[in-house]
C-alpha cells in the first residue's frame, strides 16, 4: 500500500499525512511551496500563482498567493497533528520561461513569486531547507509523504531530488 496521490492544481493547496504523494504538475513562473514535518510525516503543498493578492480581484482562493497559502497550510497541517517547530520548507519553480521577451529592468514574475514565498515563510518562522527555483524551464513536483523526499522533474534535466 503506497497510499493515494493528491494532485494539487493551479492555485490550490492540500495537506496529507502518512502514505501517498502530494503532486503538482507544470510549474512555470508559479512556485510550489512544500512543507513537511518528518516526525509526524505530514506534508503540505501549495501551487501559488502571484506574489501578492493586491494584483488580483480574487480574494477567496488562499492557494493563489504565498502570503495567504502559508498560514492556511500551517493551520491545516497542525489539524493533522504536525508540530509547528518541526516543519521545514522547500521551494520549487519560479522560472522565467520566455526570458528573451521580458521587458528589461522588470523583475520577472517567477522571481517575484520566489521572493514573496521566502517572505511568507520567514514571517511564519519556517526555515527553507532546499530550493530548485529560477532559470528558464518548467518543473513538476512529487512529494513522498512517507519520507519527505521531493522529486522535481523537468523536460530539460529529467528527475532530481531535493
Amino acid at each position: 500500500m503506497t497510499g493515494r496521490e493528491h494532485i494539487v492544481g493551479l492555485a490550490e493547496l492540500q495537506v496529507a499525512r502518512g502514505a501517498g504523494r502530494l503532486i503538482t504538475l507544470g510549474l512555470g513562473s508559479c512556485v510550489a511551496i512544500v512543507l513537511y514535518d518528518e516526525t509526524t510525516r505530514t506534508g503540505g503543498l501549495a501551487h501559488v500563482l502571484l506574489p501578492s493578492k493586491i494584483m488580483s480581484r480574487i480574494r477567496d482562493a488562499p492557494g493563489r498567493y504565498p502570503e495567504t497559502a502559508v498560514p492556511v497550510l500551517l493551520d491545516a497541517m497542525a489539524d493533522l497533528g504536525a508540530g509547528r517547530g518541526q516543519i521545514k520548507a522547500r521551494l520549487i519553480g519560479g522560472a522565467s520561461m520566455f526570458a528573451s521577451l521580458s521587458p528589461a529592468g522588470v523583475l520577472p514574475m517567477g522571481e517575484r513569486n520566489v521572493v514573496a514565498s521566502r517572505e511568507a515563510l520567514a514571517t511564519a518562522g519556517i526555515d527553507i531547507v532546499a530550493e530548485r527555483v529560477g532559470s528558464d524551464f518548467g518543473r513538476s513536483v512529487s512529494v513522498d509523504l512517507a519520507t519527505g523526499k521531493v522529486e522535481v522533474s523537468s523536460v530539460r534535466h529529467g528527475v532530481e531530488y531535493c
Binding site: G26, F137, G138, V155
Partner: peptide, 12 residues
C-alpha cells in the same frame, strides 16, 4: 520553449 504545457501557457 519545449516544456510542460501547463508551465508554457500559465507563464505566458
Amino acid at each position: 520553449v519545449l516544456d510542460f504545457a501547463g508551465a508554457v501557457l500559465t507563464s505566458t
